[in-house]
Write a protein that binds this DNA or RNA. Structure first.
Lengths: 198, 198
DNA sequence: GCGCTAAAAGCAAATAATTTGCGTTAATGG
DNA sequence: CCATTAACGCAAATTATTTGCTTTTAGCGC
């Protein structure tokens, strides 16, 4: 039961949540996550441990809660002037963030929690970003694949590799983008050679 | 430190490991995983808790250890007579297993552990199965995609959806197979034996 | 086989984390 | 402003984890 956003979000309750979240972020900066305990977080946050236990249940739910906030995109995808450029730049940045130590840890925290609501949120964040790129592409009159096609063709392979093996190379990431754009049904005003290469 | 396959695999040590693994499997059958604790497992296995603590460190490593064994494929992919049939049948079965409650839990256990060696093993298992299908296809003179193409085009999207959202529909899974086969060019055989050890 | 060495297990005491009952504070709604 | 009750704090009880030391036994050279 991640007591996130229902039931009494006012004053004190919100302050406690913010304080606990800050304590977690602060502790994760200076120490190994294996050494972070609920009593420690409670002391850092200035609350009693039982508050955390009752509200989050276990450490993993709290970590997942904090991680999902950090995974929320804080900026719009960069506008490079073309759909291909937008998607390439966004994808490379996404891959870098997710495959970094911090990104990996946060993903692990989100997936390790009992409750998969946080994982769904992460998926929604990613889809939103891609939808923005798609909207811009359409506004320019460019073709752009379905969001699902991008999720399956670009995001899923990247995440799979990060979780189950090693970080994908930048070349591999570019290939994924190239392939998903090449499979787009409506032909964009781009040279055909750019779509087939790779 | 998952003390799996090094250092003194003989008699008693092996017996203890087997006993503990059995205890975990047995307990997971009858109770919620949130209620499974190390002292409980120790009692069921007839060992002292400190043995488990020293050997696996924490519950998650032990659960990951057990889960990866259960995720090891126990049969060859079904031979349907064609590459498409083989891949379709295998994929549907894989998707069903992984998206079941048990499959999800095991995947979560594997990914939640500090040590990602178990996750790599799961990846290797999957690649091995696909390599077998590929070998058969080539023996028949059929074209078959790269293992990596199948991982990116079929396995990754399925796993991503299971982890971050909902179970993919059977139609979606068939589409993934169709698309990866449509992109296939003829290529040399890839021996499965070269891809995995243990 | 026989003993030597050290890794792994057992035991129990010490420490730390988690749960729980109950009183107190303060957010929400009328 | 008052009533209601969710959420918090506190402390005692329970349970899990760590740790020092002893015992067992696998692995190995003879």
């Amino acid at each position: 039961m991640p007591a996130k956003e229902n039931l009494r979000p006012g004053g004190r309750s919100a302050r406690v949540q913010a304080s606990v979240h800050n304590a977690v972020r602060s502790l994760l900066k200076t120490m190994d996550r294996a050494d972070v305990t609920i009593p420690l977080i409670a002391a850092e946050a200035g609350v009693t441990p039982s508050t955390i236990y009752r509200r989050w249940g276990e450490l993993q739910e709290l970590l997942a809660d904090v991680a999902v906030e950090r995974l929320r995109p804080d900026m719009l995808p960069i506008d490079t002037g073309s759909a291909r450029g937008d998607l390439e730049v966004w994808t490379e940045q996404y891959c870098e963030e997710m495959s970094s130590g911090i990104g990996r840890d946060m993903m692990r925290d989100v997936l390790a929690a009992q409750d998969n609501a946080n994982a769904c949120k992460c998926d929604a964040f990613t889809r939103e970003q891609i939808a923005l790129i798609a909207e811009r592409a359409h506004a320019r009159g460019e073709a752009f694949p379905d969001i699902d096609a991008v999720m399956d063709g670009v995001v899923a392979p990247i995440i799979y590799r990060i979780l189950f093996g090693d970080q994908p190379s930048i070349e591999r990431v570019r290939d994924l983008v190239t392939n998903v754009l090449a499979a787009t049904t409506i032909r964009p005003p781009q040279p055909a050679s750019a779509l087939i290469s790779g």
